[in-house]
Simulated scan of single mutants.
Amino acid sequence: MTAKPPASPDAASLGEHLRNLPQYLLPQGAVTAWVHRLTRIRAPWFKDRLIRWFIGRYGVDMSEAANADPGSYADFNAFFTRALRDGVRPLAAEPATLVCPVDGAVSQAGAIAGDTVFQAKGHGYSLTALLGGAAVDAAPWQDGAYATLYLSPRDYHRIHMPVDGTLRAMLHVPGRLFSVSRLTTRCVPGLFARNERVVTLWDTAVGPMALVLVGAINVASMQTVWAGTITPPRGGRVRRWDYPASGEARVHLARGEELGRFNMGSTVILAFGPGAIAWDAGIHADAPVRMGQPLARPPG
């Protein structure tokens, strides 16, 4: 008998809303800019202590790192975005299988109801808003499938391609910097469509794919392998880059290839078109995931 996935948590209580209230009052941009500077201090007496404290506090497994010596990193951010040793995240063996792009945990996964994506019990948000506000960009994913993947502080923070793909467009969407913790997802309506994010839109063998990097408090920077650092600067308007399907400016990444990284951690949201994929049995709310494990398969 197949085990049922855990039930969604109850709607947030009054106490949880009160615990979450300070996030509305924090100067989110100023705090995040301060973290950006702090995590790039190179003084050994400071960065070495911070790195060793973080490893102990969050139980980081340095045996998986390509460089296992905490003192050898130039600054905290270099440690936080560390590479892994070859072979510690093997890709799912079947070439047609889509692979998980990150280490972390599944926050939610399922079907998109028209333009509405499920966030937490009592909360949904607009797919169109998530992808930058243009209905034409969101149309391929209406009534499709989505997965929200949360990266905790202890996780590996590089993001990889689930499937071979050619980049069609990238958008930087400015916004708030709420935490993306479970408490906040239960308390802040439309959280993922309100926070700052980098939206990437791809053509793949299973049809169009959207992969969204969602910023959060203390996520001082997001970057991609083809364009470098996207944020900061933060700005006040949506920025868009379109890419050709062929030629020297074409961006094509293979399944499992690095796409980008969070300089401090957050959340990745994936979207696929209607009927394009079937989620692997291991992809359900609260399930831990590792980069390279089976994520989904083409139907049939």
Rank of each mutant, 00 (worst) to 15 (best):
G144E: 07
T224S: 14
M170P: 13
M222H: 15
V198W: 01
W141C: 05
S221A: 15
R176F: 02
D143N: 15
L183Q: 00
R197K: 13
V163W: 08
H172Q: 13
R154E: 12
L167Y: 11
G190C: 05
V206M: 00
G175L: 02
M222L: 15
D143E: 07
V206W: 00
T148F: 00
R168E: 08
A145N: 04
L211Q: 11
V180S: 07
E196V: 07
P189K: 12
R176T: 14
Q223W: 15
C187R: 07
P153S: 06
D143F: 01
L211D: 00
W141N: 11
Y146R: 03
A147I: 06
T224K: 09
A227F: 13
L171R: 15
I217R: 01
L149C: 09
P174M: 03
A147M: 02
A145V: 08
W202E: 03
N218I: 06
T200Y: 05
T185N: 14
P208L: 09
Y156T: 05
S152C: 05
P208W: 06
C187N: 10
S221C: 14
H172W: 11
A216C: 14
H157D: 12
T166H: 09
L213R: 09
L149W: 02
T148K: 03
L211Y: 07
A205C: 06
T184E: 02
L211T: 06
R168Y: 02
A216Q: 12
T184D: 00
I217P: 00
W202M: 04
A145P: 00
A169R: 15
R154K: 15
L183C: 01
F192D: 01
A216H: 11
Y150R: 14
V212Y: 05
S181A: 10
